[in-house]
Design a protein around this nucleic acid. Sequence first.
DNA 1: GATATACTTCAAGCATGATTGAAGTGATTA
DNA 2: TAATCACTTCAATCATGCTTGAAGTATATC
Lengths: 136, 136
Amino acid sequence: MIEVITQDRPVVVDALPATQQLAAWLKVLAEPRRLQILNLLIAGVQCNCELGDHLDMAPNLISHHLSVLRKAGLVEVERDAVDARWVYYSLNRATLAALNAAFGAFFDPTRIQPRRAVCGPQGNVLPAATIHVTKH
Amino acid sequence: MIEVITQDRPVVVDALPATQQLAAWLKVLAEPRRLQILNLLIAGVQCNCELGDHLDMAPNLISHHLSVLRKAGLVEVERDAVDARWVYYSLNRATLAALNAAFGAFFDPTRIQPRRAVCGPQGNVLPAATIHVTKH
DNA sequence: GATATACTTCAAGCATGATTGAAGTGATTA
DNA sequence: TAATCACTTCAATCATGCTTGAAGTATATC
């Protein structure tokens, strides 16, 4: 826990469970192929083979990514009642809702505070354009 | 581009710019320390040294992560007008708004389509609980 | 039972990127 | 001008995890 002093009372800028949970979800989502898989699941595509056809990926790789998504609670698994060899994946709407809530809470524009001049001379600030950007 | 057939008209499930852009942002955000840095920036903390104090990180590492955030357009840089040795980082609200919009659009619950039985016998589905989970 | 199907798990190889210490840059002060 | 300060860049190490091919599992069919 880190405390930042406001006018007269401390505000907690937690290093915290909520942020950690969001970080864990983002790590799972920060994979282009997993996002594509989610995109297909959202569109109603559900079996390993068809996901592979659409994304041009080996079935074991699809299986791996689906496993990661499943461990994160984002997708669920079912087997076909007629022929149980077929496996269908679907979205976990509750987790998706929690994810949306966590993301929205963290990046809520109204949370943004003005600069606190804790270090530095006094904090009169130059426009960004005047900065010397080093080229290499 | 991938086309999925709905009732009577094709719906584009693009492999697409919007998803690619979101994936790029998520990759930048999927780093616990960067999320913590953003969290501090949101709380009004802005110079490298103080971020380092709060997060117990070396200044060069902070600098590295801030550089990644800056290249993603999420933060901006300014130098102090009184003493230009001090550098202040702040959030780019426009990019943050675009990020929120992209995330919200991708994970919009109303986008979720019901299963399309394209492969598999017919798609009568068993509850997830009946699945045999292999242990090792 | 033997074979086929749909998928999963395992055991590498490999690439990306976080981390670290040292050197470098720009600005200020003595 | 020399020294200091705040920060950045560089080079190298190291860890995480994606990817791939092979082997394994569960289910269904012959």
